[in-house]
């Protein structure tokens, strides 16, 4: 009978969990690895940067890859204190999203336009069908998120993801008389 084997590629330097290729894992400066759960926890302190060059190629900069295991461990211990500082900075909202660019799409006959607000989740998480508030030039509008799309490819046919702290994504919503531009904040309570 063919041999059954486990698929782990090692163990996380921080928590000891198995590194599973199907879940993904992060790399550290010394060549060690941390699991996707530890990466997700400290991502809010070290946000992932996604840009595109003139040829349309993705340029990805992950500050976690520049950390040593000791620095990553210290970050893991301080992540909640860091999140509390961010909460205090943003009026104790439970989640905050900074809008960096906006794209609109026609909503259909007699329907309001669909707004794709691209940016970064500062902290917290955003899921489809969450109720949030758009803070635009001193005013606040209630919105319902119809989708959360990955920044690399977004459109109606692409499946939704979860917007988590430190990651870039596009929040999708629509509504009458909504104005959204770069610099706005979308918050969740």
């Amino acid at each position: 009978m063919a041999k059954i084997k486990s698929i782990e590629k090692g163990f996380c330097s921080l928590c000891g969990r198995a590194l599973l290729p199907n879940e993904g894992y992060g790399r550290l400066r010394d060549g060690g690895h941390i699991c996707s759960l530890c990466t997700g926890k400290i991502r809010v302190m070290y946000p992932l940067s996604l840009t595109w060059d003139k040829k349309g190629n993705e340029v990805r900069h992950d500050p976690i890859e520049e950390l040593s295991p000791e620095e990553a461990g210290k970050a893991l211990e301080n992540v909640i204190a860091y999140t509390e500082e961010l909460r205090a900075k943003y009026d104790h909202h439970n989640a905050a999203f900074a809008v960096e660019s906006v794209t609109t799409e026609k909503g259909g006959f007699l329907k309001p336009p669909i707004i794709y607000a691209c940016g970064r989740v500062i902290y917290g998480c955003f899921d489809p069908e969450d109720k949030a508030r758009l803070l635009h030039k001193g005013s606040a509008s209630d919105i319902t998120l119809t989708g959360i799309k990955r920044l690399e490819f977004y459109g109606a046919g692409v499946s939704d993801c979860q917007g988590t702290g430190g990651n870039s994504c596009a929040l999708v919503f629509s509504g009458k008389n909504l104005a959204c531009e770069a610099g706005d904040l979308i918050v969740r309570d």
Partner: peptide, 10 residues
């Protein structure tokens, strides 16, 4: 206990 996954051929 450390959670892992087994690849079963076939």
């Amino acid at each position: 206990l450390i959670h892992t996954l087994l690849e079963v051929p076939g």
